[in-house]
């Protein structure tokens, strides 16, 4: 029963810590404009990087944006890590393997959940393939990235101990799952049992290697949102709330209301340079 409870704790911790992280960024003051083009939501212009600023008297015209274009752009990045593919292909192969592996493991869990209610032999094959591919890809991706960072000088000099640890942690989790699969469970059938235990809150019986694997998996699930591996949170803000936030101030609009609220804030601290008002006397 311990494993079941622990995995529930891990999932809940993941969600709570991720939301906490998101809330920390969300409650920060509205930033000054720092958009960067292309902004995909610019209707009819996003594809070449254009904006409403290409219009004469743009402030008198209706603002036209496309949520669809924004979602398409977002999905390309989430599903394929397109920017890395376009700009850093050698690293993309390994990074994408790792990320795709994680997506496949999430998919594996979703399929196991569905299979609890609707069981079918073909479906079970798909589940096994999904889980196996996920484990292999995470292992290859994280292991490959770890090696690349250890040997490639221009990556090595910037990589911190924690960053090595993060990759190693992911690798060990995947490798322990891989070993369990190869040695003890070629059909990856433990997944069905585990899902059943999770959904019925009944004890799950696992051998030593699988226990180690699941404990490590639980720990990494808790650990991810506490580290910069939580970039799934950060990425939402960097794109949606910074690079793609080109909403202008117009008298009476939503931004103007927020700006007005922000103006009421009186900073407690003060910059020390002499050109700041009130600092000139410090020179004497």
């Amino acid at each position: 029963m311990f494993l079941v409870v622990f995995l529930y704790i891990a999932f809940i911790a993941f969600i709570v810590f991720s939301l906490k992280k998101a809330a920390e960024f969300a409650k920060m003051p509205m930033h000054g404009r720092w958009e960067l083009y292309p902004v995909p939501k610019e209707k009819g212009k996003g594809h070449y990087g254009g904006s409403y600023y290409e219009e004469v008297k743009w402030y008198e015209k209706k603002r036209e944006t496309s949520l669809g274009a924004e979602i398409i752009d977002m999905m390309k990045e989430i599903l394929f890590i397109k920017k890395l593919f376009d700009n850093q292909r050698p690293l993309w192969w390994l990074s994408y393997a790792m990320h795709l592996g994680i997506y496949l493991i999430i998919g594996w869990l979703v399929l196991l959940f569905i299979a609890f209610f609707i069981s079918h032999p073909v479906f079970n094959v798909l589940i096994t393939l999904c889980g196996a591919a996920g484990i292999i890809l995470v292992m290859v991706g994280s292991g490959g990235l770890l090696i690349k960072r250890l040997v490639q000088e221009e990556l090595k000099i910037y990589t911190t101990g924690q960053e090595y640890f993060n990759l190693a942690f992911l690798f060990v989790v995947a490798a322990s799952g891989f070993l369990n699969w190869i040695i003890f469970d070629p059909a990856l059938s433990y997944g069905h049992q585990l899902m059943k235990s999770l959904l019925t809150l009944t004890p799950f019986s696992a051998g030593p290697l699988l226990t180690v694997h699941l404990l490590l998996a639980g720990l990494v699930i808790i650990y991810i949102p506490l580290t910069k591996m939580s970039h799934y949170v950060g990425k939402f803000f960097t794109f949606h709330k910074v690079f793609w936030d080109n909403e202008p101030y117009l008298p009476g609009n939503e931004i103007s209301v927020k700006v007005k609220e922000g103006m009421n804030y009186k900073p407690r601290g003060k910059w020390a340079a002499l050109h700041y008002p009130g600092n000139q006397h410090e020179e004497k």
Binding site: F25, G32, E163, K228
Partner: peptide, 17 residues
């Protein structure tokens, strides 16, 4: 600038892209 700055400081993966 606190939000954009913290995001840029916190999440760099050092991928050198």
């Amino acid at each position: 600038m606190i939000q954009p700055l913290l995001l840029s400081l916190e999440y760099c993966a050092k991928c050198n892209t």
